[in-house]
Design a protein around this nucleic acid. Structure first.
Lengths: 338, 338
DNA sequence: CTGAAAGCGCTAACAA
DNA sequence: TTGTTAGCGCTTTCAG
């Protein structure tokens, strides 16, 4: 069907040398005479030769490839983290195989199985939905680092994360300090990241003596979920003057819902998000948020992974990064209640 | 360093059969007795056996993998197209290897070279920045389909695209029919997609007798670029009452700039984007746009690719999909000029 | 510096 | 139905 690709053997015979010399030359070994190298490179170029990664990986017993799973390609958070990962991986001369499981545990498992069949030397999971058992199974087979979660422990599971409880508290405290009391939390669903952010909110409310005002609206981490939760919050008997939303994308949805109700942000309702996506800095949105150092988290993850690929038995590190409150235009003091 | 993974050979000896029988059993061949299959599967499970994709691909002379290059993971457009691609690729029992070149021709080339070394059986390029020569070189080696562009032709280059000239005209005509005359175009930079959209705008303006009002502000296809272009447009001596922006992400940036100037959308300035990203449907943004059938474009691309993998010499198809104007809240009739 | 030979894990005839 | 035998393209000893 397809004409066969040229192999190392074709290059060798065209250059008039042996296979192994070509192999050396292709990888820039110094033990090749200039004349031979010249001839080999020329022959390779003439033929349009490309090394076969499958063959190399088989003979070499290593793929020089790492696998990356991301929760959801639609959320720009992950693009930022990926930038950090990719630059580090490339710097190491590795390739990355990128997959998504669309937040579905079974698909995530299937994708990771594929990755392992491809003999990736390590795994970076950017916010997964795996069960602890499944995660440990993978981590037992190959160096693994988890980004944005640190709830599942294991001897070989490195993590890069921020303190979501503290971050959630930061968000709530900001609203409290502005003078809000009717502060609702639009929660992010059944996952540890969202649960921690909610916990931070609860803690802050309680510390401020506002435990009776704690209002948690169930929701999710997508724009549509934020929109729906906000609608429900505003339809209640005692609508909030401020909302802390589980992440930025959902916060954008929430802002949309507020404005659609004929209310303004922050005039009638203040909104705080979480993550620090670039879009939130746009003046229209101007989203106050708890910003994670996304790209750096990616870089750190890749660095941890390579450290562990080097020394697999080293004990796991848990890197905690600092998130910070970025105050923008979506929050303000509450309107005076007349 | 790492303990070696179990191989087909280990499974065979544990199950008391030969390598080839295991190979057959693993791929569900009917020519294996139930007893053997049972034993083999059990042994494989006990050992935690995973087939080695590199070895399989080498022996099989096919990788069952396609390569996908996307322009920019930060633009949600591509996530939507990818959804379409992935579902089709999975349905065919193939895997996809996803890479980005971050809109840099050299990096794109390097990434595609890698993909070919991995022996991908086909390539889907979702909006690339390759030179015609480079693209043709790749297409000569492996079945290739290009999504969102149709400017580079070649006997083996399939394309899936919309008519950007017509789409650009659609956007401009909408603004014209609303009564606008001072309509600026915030252009998308030096690439054929953006140039075509601009052409459509010029055509529509000319047809309406508004050639003297044609105003093109140079820019780019990111939120930051849209923001900057809009600022420039508004700072001009004769600020526009409407803007057609080269894509949705840039349009969001433009809206931000308008609002920051103390003007409102659509009260003072109407804004139209292009692409149809989900975010634009949020009520806050409520972006009028020319929507492409993104996910379907992905599906079509994958279908074309598999058709071509089947029959490589078949002549190239150029699929044109319909885009449609989606009118939302970011456009309205111009304010009466007092 | 160069070449021959073995083998990575798997598939695919072909025989038995 | 099963086992044997060759490779797939490459890296890597190990002799020349």
């Amino acid at each position: 069907m397809r004409e066969p690709r040229p192999t190392i053997h074709d290059v060798a015979s065209r250059a008039g040398v042996s296979k192994s010399l070509v192999s050396l030359a292709m990888r820039g070994s110094p033990k090749v005479s200039d004349a031979s190298r010249e001839a080999i490179l020329q022959a390779a170029a003439d033929l349009g030769y490309r090394p076969n990664a499958a063959a190399r990986s088989l003979a070499d017993r290593r793929s020089r490839t790492v696998g990356v799973l991301v929760l959801d390609l639609h959320n720009p958070v992950f693009a930022d983290i990926l930038d950090g990962i990719q630059s580090e991986v490339r710097a190491q001369g590795y390739s990355t195989m990128l997959v998504t499981g669309a937040a579905d545990p079974d698909r995530e498992q299937a994708e990771l199985d594929k990755l392992l069949e491809f003999q990736v030397e390590g795994l970076i999971l950017v916010s997964h939905r795996l069960s602890p058992a499944a995660l440990r199974r993978f981590a037992a087979e190959v160096p693994t680092v988890v980004v944005t979660r640190d709830d599942i422990h294991g001897p070989r599971i490195d993590t890069i994360s921020n303190d979501d409880v503290a971050g959630g508290a930061l968000a709530a405290e900001h609203l409290i300090s502005l003078g809000h009391t009717r502060i609702a939390h639009l929660a992010g669903g059944d996952n540890p990241v969202a649960r921690n952010r909610e916990q931070g909110y609860r803690d802050a409310m309680t510390s401020a003596g506002l435990e009776d005002d704690i209002t948690v609206i169930p929701g999710g981490l997508t724009d549509a979920a934020g929109y729906a939760s906000a609608q429900r919050a505003l339809a209640g008997p005692r609508p909030p003057s401020a909302m802390f939303v589980a992440n930025d994308i959902a916060a954008l949805g929430a802002i949309a819902a507020v404005q659609e109700c004929g209310q303004s942000v922050p005039g009638d309702v203040s909104v705080v998000g979480y993550d620090g996506i670039a879009l939130g800095a746009l003046r229209t949105l101007s989203l106050t948020t708890v910003a994670q150092p996304l790209e750096r988290m990616g870089t750190l993850a890749a660095q941890r992974l390579f450290a562990r690929i080097e020394r697999p038995r080293q004990r796991a590190h848990h890197v905690l990064v600092e998130s910070e409150l970025v105050v923008r235009g979506s929050t303000a003091a509450p309107a005076i209640d007349l």
